[in-house]
Design a binder for these strands. Structure first.
Lengths: 340, 340
DNA sequence: CTATAAATTGATACCGGTGTCATGACTTAC
DNA sequence: GTAAGTCATGACACCGGTATCAATTTATAG
């Protein structure tokens, strides 16, 4: 089996099959201009030798690599991991590889760095989870460089084939209806930084959900946090110290919602008896806290997978099928209960 | 500035500098056989044109890519993320890119898949965090393929340049001494699967730490979990139902330790008054739980960074310096207190 | 000043694929 | 049966670099 120590090249296959390397190339690339007999003969040799084309050489000739870049700058590693896993699910066995690239989206050199990264590596495609996906200059650069890309974000910023929308607003609206249906009327909101599109969308969705139940968001009950645990503690302390204390708090991510637990404990308040809490992300901590926390779940891994399917052709997955719709889902646990 | 739309190649630079492409190649590769004047002239052109060699072409000629593979199969995504971040820290600006590759270490086709992956991509190097790092067949394969690699694991399984040791045992020993010093004598252990080297090492370290204080591990107080929350709940339930109930529980990871919180609550026991808990990993949940959990911290990101420094030459980091020693550290919080 | 050694440099082949275009074989039309 | 068109294939250049080795220049020795 192991005749020579080095992997066979296209020349070896061509010689063994008694054809030119160009014909082997045609077989590899599924050119229709190959006689059936020839194709089979070549494929037999390919199978016997275990030949696989060298991605570097192929990429050099194609002027395009077989690398997909994941460009991210998410404060929540959970998001990155999940997206990455999903992407890898979709890419497994496709012959493409995933190159990960964290960036600082506030860096003035971001665009230059991205240009160099993409041009140098001649990336086949790029996946941009939020908040990087929200940078229109970056999207413009990708179009200029003629690279395939998929942006993952909470709202449609691009044409369908290039944008995967997670509809964060719908999930937030569901949370709003849930709390309203439990009888809450003084519902506080701990938002993330308004520079994040997700914060804006989630807030909008939350407000529209409240509106559906005839409620509106009291500006005095809105705090802007930084998507961190500490900022959640701080915001919750202020909210829980109010004379007209809210009976429920919705947080735009679980980190901050966890901070509400801490603040509530310090204020001597019980969850959910004194204050209901609903988070966003359904991170692993949500179900570990006591009481287990209600939270809006985004199918992050699925989103990564779908983005991958949109980007790379995968022979193992035959059906290109319609792009499934991503829907957030409210997971109701014990941290949200009837008011009173 | 932007004369032509395509990036300059080595030929452009050679023509503009009035030398052959081979000389430009020598300058790029820092060959000592280039006259100072020539080198400067070429470097000037390189700077002016913004030329950068094509990694694919270079890799093709070198028979080696500029890709580093991260091969992992860790049930705890936190570990993967942290290692990955550290690796990327070390690789930033080096010209190398990180390709991530999750695997199933129990798959019978693992070795074949790895061989194909490494040979096809002609990887420059590979990083193997535990538990993948514990597979000796894989290490043998990497040596056969003549690929640089760094194994990250709890104990030395390879020569120093190829192994980064995290000394999990020391951290576990510290936890043991900590609990013993608090007066605990009936100390339970919830272990991970013994197929994980980390479990074995942590347990050994824990036992030696107990021995230092004149204690020994009671086999009746040892449960083997699966490194999951659920297994932690199950193991803790059994332990806390014992007549001779342990006054402290050490868990070989935080997931299981979090399960002890749940089991204790269900059993009506208080932490730390009725039972002290110490975890391992110092994952983010440890400090969010109530009471905040004592846990052994491993500098995972630093480990990734050091592994990266061991693997890739980085011009931005001049000092190769001695390999720093990785030391676990016990973070004492409120879940461990004097026996009483 | 000449012979010899050492330092520089470039011509050419090659890494392992693909694109272009010409060529020969085979059909189909008349 | 011959002309024209289609199909199948290969020769050769090329993608953008590096390796080899010979050629040229410069330095050192005698």
């Amino acid at each position: 089996m192991e005749g020579s120590s080095r992997r066979p090249t296209i020349n070896d296959v061509a010689r063994m099959a008694g054809v030119s390397k160009k014909t082997v190339s045609r077989v590899i690339n599924e050119s229709p201009f190959v006689k059936e007999d020839t194709r089979k003969a070549v494929q037999t040799i390919i199978r016997e030798t275990g030949y696989a084309p060298d991605p570097q050489a192929r990429g050099l000739a194609f002027r395009r690599s077989f690398l997909v870049g994941l460009i991210y700058d998410n404060p929540n590693p959970q998001h990155t991991v999940s997206h990455q896993q999903g992407l890898l699910d979709a890419m497994a066995g496709s012959g493409f590889e995933l190159v990960v690239r964290p960036v600082d989206r506030t860096s003035p050199r971001l665009l230059d760095e991205m240009r160099v990264f993409i041009e140098r590596q001649k990336l086949f495609g790029v996946v941009l989870p939020s908040p990087v996906s929200e940078d229109e200059r970056l999207a413009a650069l990708l179009q200029e460089l003629d690279v395939r890309y998929v942006r993952i974000g909470s709202v449609a910023l691009d044409e369908p084939g290039r944008m995967l929308v997670s509809h964060d607003g719908k999930g937030a609206a569901e949370a709003a209806r849930h709390l309203a249906d439990l009888g809450h009327t003084r519902i506080a909101l701990i938002s993330g930084p308004t520079s994040f599109r997700s914060s804006v969308e989630r807030r909008k969705g939350f407000e529209s959900g409240l509106a559906e139940r005839g409620l509106s968001l009291d500006p005095a009950l809105v705090k802007v946090g930084g998507y961190t645990y500490e900022s959640g503690v701080g915001a919750a302390k202020e909210l829980l110290a109010l004379k007209a204390r809210p009976t429920a708090v919705f947080c735009l991510n679980d980190e901050m919602a966890t901070g509400v637990y801490t603040a509530a404990r310090e204020a001597g308040l019980r969850i959910p008896e004194d204050v209901s809490v609903v988070g966003f992300d359904d991170s692993s901590i949500a179900s570990r806290l006591w009481p287990p926390m209600s939270s809006v779940r985004l199918p992050l891994r699925d989103m990564g997978r779908i983005a991958g399917e949109m980007l790379v052709p995968n022979p193992l997955r035959d059906k290109p099928k319609v792009q499934p719709d991503i829907q957030p889902e409210l997971i109701v646990r014990a941290s949200s209960a009837k008011v009173g």
